[in-house]
Design a protein around this nucleic acid. Structure first.
Length: 150
DNA sequence: GCCAACGTTGGC
DNA sequence: GCCAACGTTGGC
């Protein structure tokens, strides 16, 4: 089974690539969108993901992380005091999931969103066509092309 | 801070 | 099952 590629968004004010570098690894909690959740569940150990900084100036791809633990229930959904609390998620049949990712690489300079938009090879990228999806697949050709920019 | 895009909720 | 209202994301 070939390794798959992904893109995961985080607001750097909340959690940045530098935070991940410092922590070495982290759990990716708080995803509350079904499409994004389905992508999380499809991730396999060893898959690589671009770490995207949203709501940044400029927004862009800051580095790479690696999946080190496959999807398991997002416990923050069961915690009333958590901002990710969802009373509809039943511990016996969890609605939301998270994965663990490890720091892989920080780009010398982030690849800014405007640069991605300039490339015709990337015009079908999910990022450029569904700007709200926080966990999304990346095609191998797109992955390679972006690595050239980084 | 504004607002377009779009996912979710809930009345009917 | 439709769709209006509403909330959130995220670029600018």
């Amino acid at each position: 089974m070939a390794r798959q590629f992904w893109l995961m968004k985080s607001e750097p004010d909340v959690y940045s690539i530098d935070d991940l570098a410092r922590d070495t690894s982290t759990f990716w909690d708080g995803v509350r969108n079904y499409q994004a959740r389905n992508h999380l569940k499809a991730m396999k150990k060893g898959d690589l993901a671009f770490f995207y900084h949203s709501n940044a100036t400029p927004p862009g791809i800051a580095g790479i992380c690696r999946v080190v633990r496959e999807a398991y229930p997002d416990s923050t959904a069961f915690e009333p005091e958590s901002k990710y609390y969802d009373p509809r998620s039943d511990p016996d049949q969890p609605r939301w999931f998270m994965v663990d990712v490890a720091f892989e690489e920080k780009f010398d300079a982030p690849v800014p969103l405007p640069s991605l938009k300039e490339l015709p090879e990337l015009e079908d990228m999910v990022l450029l066509n569904n700007s709200r999806l926080s966990v999304q697949p990346v095609k191998p050709s797109e992955w390679e092309r972006i690595l050239q920019l980084a």
